[in-house]
């Protein structure tokens, strides 16, 4: 059965790539790039992408009246956050000293300058830009999250970011990556899955993840 996925448009970043990548993996589904709260509420699945600066993203989300629709989606339907769409799920963000949506407890710090040194003493560049490995977290019961299915552990995804999420509770960590420090590159809780990298720009591994998201049936309790 065909479903509708809403890609939430709050004016930040290139949503076209996200929409095109989903259309590519789910040709029978309807992909809606929208800022309409009613359309988000009516959608079967919701994707919140986002790039740029966290303060701008939060401001635009508020200005367009999208805080509530996004919170409701995060509470009840298959929800995929990408990049800033991951970061905004958390509480305090160091960037611009703003508060996120607070759906998940934790903070969003910047890569610490002191830790940005490679083994040979070379400085690591920030933003963390490029293809890095994502180590899939084994959940309780010994399985990895269903959205990792079909993707080899340690596969590379495309990242562009200077800030990362630091969840308060380790059980929401679905994937981790290292760049100077180990950091959380994917989180999951019930109907929520959110990633720091850009699946829409991550070639086959990213498309596989988006396809799995479009078929995902999370249990909500």
């Amino acid at each position: 059965m065909s479903c509708t996925v809403a890609v939430v448009d709050y004016g930040m970043g290139n949503l076209r790539s996200v929409a095109k990548a989903i259309e590519h993996v789910a040709p029978d589904d309807r992909v809606l790039v929208t800022a309409d709260p009613a359309a988000i509420a009516a959608a079967d699945r919701v994707v919140v992408p986002g790039q740029g600066a966290m303060p701008d993203c939060m401001r635009e989300l508020e200005a367009r009246g999208l805080r509530q629709p996004v919170l409701e989606a995060a509470a009840e339907k298959p929800f995929l956050g990408i990049c800033i769409g991951l970061q905004m799920l958390f509480g305090h963000a160091e960037e611009g000293n703003v508060m996120g949506l607070g759906v998940l407890p934790g903070r969003v710090p910047r890569f610490p300058r002191a830790a940005m040194v490679a083994a040979d003493g070379a400085r690591l560049k920030v933003p963390h830009m490029g293809w890095n490995e994502v180590n899939q977290a084994v959940q309780e019961g010994g399985e990895v999250h269903p959205l990792w299915h079909g993707i080899a552990d340690g596969s590379r995804f495309y990242f562009v970011h200077s800030y990362y999420v630091e969840p308060e509770h380790a059980e929401v960590i679905a994937g981790s990556t290292q760049y100077g420090i180990p950091f959380t590159s994917a989180v999951a809780r019930a109907n929520i899955f959110a990633v720091q990298f850009h699946p829409e720009k991550s070639a086959q591994a990213g498309l596989q993840l988006l396809g799995s998201f479009m078929r995902w049936k999370p249990s909500l309790c």
């Binding site: 830790a115 490679a118 083994a119 690591l124 963390h128 490029g130 293809w131 890095n132 490995e133 590379r156 969840p167 380790a170 960590i173 981790s176 990556t177 290292q178 760049y179 100077g180 420090i181 180990p182 959380t184």
Partner: peptide, 17 residues
């Protein structure tokens, strides 16, 4: 750091493009 025990943080896995 306690969230990721046992990682050797000196390994840089970011690929050269």
């Amino acid at each position: 750091m306690a969230l990721f025990p046992g990682w050797d943080t000196d390994d840089i896995m970011l690929a050269k493009r």
